[in-house]
Design a protein around this nucleic acid. Structure first.
Lengths: 202, 202
DNA sequence: GAGATTGACATACGGAGCGTATGCGAGATG
DNA sequence: CATCTCGCATACGCTCCGTATGTCAATCTC
C-alpha cells in the first residue's frame, strides 16, 4: 500500500520535522531557531533534516508552503460562507486579518518568509493565499462590481493592507479595541475598488 | 565646540559604522552580514561596534532609524510639492512606493526591520514615516475630505498597501510596466477613504 | 534465502560568527 | 606631571550551520 515501508516512514519523519519546525520558528523566529534542538525534539538529528530538506531554508520553505495552504483554505471558506461576491471579498479580508493575528502565521509567513525566502509571489508554494484573492477579484471585475483595475495589483494591495492591519492589531496592547478599527479601515479602502461606490454607512 | 576631541571622533566613527552597515545589510541582508567584515571595511573592529551599539540588533536599529528619517523627509516633500490636501496624500503614497523600490530601503527597513526588530510602530525611531502619513490623514479628516475613520488605522493600511505594491514591483521582471499598475490600484484604494467619492476616471 | 545494494539517518569534523572579558594607549582632569 | 577615563583592539569560548563519512535495516538479485 504505502509504497514500501521505507518511503512511508520517511514521509512520517518529514511531517514530524515540519511540525517541530513550525513550533520552533514560531517561538524563536527562523534565525534564532536551532536545528539541533528542533530535530532532537522529535528524536532525530540534523542528518535527517539535511537529507529531506537540503538546508535550513528548505525547511522554512516547506513550513511556509504548508501554512500558506491552510490560510488559502480558510480564506476561501470565509468568502463562501459570506455568499461570495462583494461581501465575500470583504469576508476574505477580515479572515486574512484575523489569521495574521495568529503568532505562528505572523512570525513565519508574514515576517520571516519574505525576509529569508524573498518575495512571496516567487515562492515554490506559489502563495496560494494570493491566488484565492486574485480569483475573487477577477470574478468581481468581470461582473462589473469592481473597477477594471489590474487584478494582481488589486489582490496584492488588499493582502498588503490586511497584513499591516494585522501587525498593528497584534502589537497593540488592546487588540479587541483595535481590531474593529482595522477592519473598518480595511473595508473603507476596499470600497475604493467598487465601480459604483456605496453611500457612507456611518 | 565639539565637546572634546574624543566625543567628536566617536561620533564620526559611529557614523562610519552606520554607513558601512547600510551597505552590508543592503547587500547581504541583516542575518548574513558579518560584523567582522563590516567593521573592517572602515578600519575598525567589533570592539568599537559593541561599545557604541550594544549588539548587532542595536546597529540595525540605528541604521533603520536613519533611513526611516530620510524616508519621512522625502514623503513630506512629495506631499508639499503636490500642494498638500488630497493630491498630497496621493503623492505621498506614490513617493512611498517609489522609495520602496530602492533595494537598500526594501531590504533593511521593509524586510529585515520588521523581522528582527518587531513591529515598526514600536521602534525607537518611532517610525517617522508613519507619523507623516498620520498627520496628513488627520488634517484631511478634519477638513471633511476623508471619511472619519481611525487615523492610525488608515495611515497603517495605506503604508502597508504601498509596501506590498513596492515589493511586487521590485520583484517583477518589468518594473516599468508594473509600476503604473501598482500606482493606479493604490489610488483606487485610497479613494475608498474619500467622503464624497470622485467619479471613475477611466 | 543469502549476498549485494540502496538509502534514510546518525556521527564527526571544520569553519564562521557572535558576545564578552580583558588589555592598552591617547586624551581629559586636577 | 600624575592620574583617571574611556573608546577601541585583542583574545577567548560558545553555538551553530553545512558536509563528509559511517552504519544498519529494508529492498533487490539470482
Amino acid at each position: 500500500m504505502a509504497q514500501s515501508k521505507r518511503a512511508a516512514t520517511m514521509e512520517a519523519n518529514r511531517a514530524r520535522l515540519i511540525a517541530a519546525a513550525r513550533a520552533a520558528f514560531a517561538e524563536h523566529g527562523f534565525a534564532a531557531a536551532s536545528m539541533d534542538d528542533l530535530t532532537a525534539a522529535v528524536r532525530l538529528t540534523r542528518g535527517a533534516l539535511y537529507h529531506s530538506f537540503g538546508d535550513k531554508r528548505g525547511l522554512l520553505a516547506a513550513v511556509v508552503a504548508q501554512i500558506d495552504g491552510e490560510m488559502a483554505q480558510r480564506a476561501q471558506a470565509a468568502a463562501e460562507a459570506a455568499g461570495g461576491g462583494w461581501p465575500g471579498l470583504l469576508a476574505e479580508g477580515r479572515a486574512y486579518i484575523r489569521m495574521a493575528l495568529d503568532p505562528e502565521i505572523r512570525r513565519i509567513v508574514l515576517l520571516d518568509g519574505p525576509a529569508f525566502l524573498g518575495d512571496p509571489s516567487q515562492w515554490p508554494s506559489q502563495n496560494a493565499c494570493l491566488e484565492v484573492t486574485q480569483r475573487t477579484v477577477a470574478r468581481l471585475i468581470a461582473d462589473g462590481v469592481l473597477k477594471p483595475v489590474d487584478i494582481e495589483a488589486a489582490a496584492r494591495l488588499l493582502n498588503g493592507a490586511a497584513l499591516n492591519a494585522a501587525l498593528w492589531v497584534a502589537s497593540s496592547q488592546a487588540p479587541e479595541v483595535v481590531l474593529p478599527k482595522a477592519v473598518e479601515a480595511f473595508e473603507c479602502l476596499s470600497e475604493g475598488l467598487l465601480a459604483r461606490p456605496a453611500p457612507a454607512t456611518s
